[in-house]
């Protein structure tokens, strides 16, 4: 990471900056909108870096500690860069009872990464999702927006090959 004199970690040269500024000006000074803003900001950058959190704190007039507290409380916010494809294995009860743990173990084995890690090539991040309400198709796995139901240990390789 480059160190620049201003200390913003290169954010001022990031091409996504105008998008960020647009969001921040819409919610300027609106403390109650913190979670909504963090959602939008994460969808721009993929995660919430320190610099981005600082900008949000400034614009919404919220202490940085509070922004950090909210970002770390909710599991959907990530403070680390994510892989291009986020694999979410649902470990809700219905999926668990139908073998989701085995599915998770198999993916760990095939990709060579542990839960919550990102693969070295930056392609996949492996996470556990909470129940997404597709219990009729248990066990369920998501890869970004795609949902796969009735996943079996044997079909995982085929699914991963698509990405």
């Amino acid at each position: 990471m480059t160190t620049s004199a201003c200390g913003c970690g290169g954010l001022h040269t990031d091409p996504r900056l105008p998008e960020l500024e647009a969001v921040l000006s819409e919610f300027k000074g609106n403390r109650g909108a913190l979670i909504q803003v963090l959602h939008k900001v994460q969808s721009i950058f993929g995660y919430l870096s320190d610099e981005v959190q600082e900008r949000v704190a400034e614009a919404l007039d919220v202490p940085l500690s509070e922004v950090y507290g909210v970002a770390t409380f909710y599991s959907l916010f990530s403070l680390k860069p994510q892989g291009q494809y986020k694999i979410g294995v649902c470990l809700g009860t219905a999926c668990y009872v139908r073998g989701a743990q085995q599915v998770l173990n198999e993916i760990e084995k095939q990709l060579g990464i542990k839960l919550n890690d990102t693969s070295d090539d930056g392609k996949f991040t492996l996470e556990v999702t909470r129940c997404i309400g597709a219990c009729g198709l248990a066990p369920v796995m998501t890869i970004n927006e795609d949902v796969y139901g009735r996943v079996e240990v044997g079909t995982i390789a085929e699914i991963l090959k698509k990405y």
Binding site: I35, Q36, L38, H39, Y74, S75, L76, F77
Partner: peptide, 8 residues
């Protein structure tokens, strides 16, 4: 609408 962020 207010959307949550993943906290049971």
């Amino acid at each position: 609408i207010r959307v949550g962020a993943g906290a049971f």
